[in-house]
Computed example of a mutant assay.
Amino acid sequence: MTSTPPPVVRLVALREEPLDVAEVLAALEEAGSGGLTLFVGRVRDHDGGRGVVALDYSAHPSALDRMREVCSRVAEEYAVHAVAAVHRTGPLAVGDLAVVVATAAAHRDVAFEASRALIDTLKAEVPIWKHQRFEGGTEEWVGTP
């Protein structure tokens, strides 16, 4: 009896709940993967020389489908065994995890390249917008069309 290999795109999610790095790592468990590259994006306390106090992420209704498309493209373009991407929406505080992406491959160089392509393409193409609030009461939207 032969078993069907698991899909390469293992986890894609857009959620308001806190993100869990362990969930992403577990999704990419693959015996043949010698390299797994994980990127965690966190809310930092500054941007453009201003102190950030909080932010909110909003997503277009198509954002999850676009995330899946980007993950599928990365899976096709790189020799990876597994891909995962999870992004947070809603209100976040400084230090909260905003995005977690990872790829697993036979070798580290492929995993590094694929993970870099994954996060860069997600940021460029997926309609998720950041509303930052700064010390002193100013605010700005980032990534809106």
Rank of each mutant, 00 (worst) to 15 (best):
E139Y: 06
P5S: 11
P7C: 07
Y57S: 01
H87C: 01
E77M: 00
A104G: 04
E23V: 07
T144Q: 15
S62L: 15
V80K: 02
A84N: 05
E139W: 13
G41L: 05
E29H: 10
A93I: 10
V9A: 04
H87D: 01
R116S: 12
G137W: 09
P91A: 14
V99Y: 10
G49C: 07
V70G: 00
A54V: 03
L122Q: 02
A111G: 01
L19N: 01
W141G: 07
V53L: 14
V126E: 14
H81A: 09
Y57H: 03
T103W: 13
D65W: 14
F112I: 13
R15G: 05
T103F: 06
A84R: 08
V24L: 07
H107L: 08
Y57W: 07
Q132D: 08
L28R: 05
P6V: 04
P7M: 05
L92Q: 02
A75V: 12
W129R: 01
A105P: 12
D109L: 11
V126S: 01
A102Y: 07
R73A: 10
E17P: 01
G95M: 09
V21E: 15
W141F: 08
A104E: 12
H131Q: 07
F134A: 05
M1A: 14
A79S: 11
C71V: 09
V40P: 02
E23Y: 03
R10I: 02
H46A: 14
A124Y: 11
E76M: 01
A82H: 09
A54K: 01
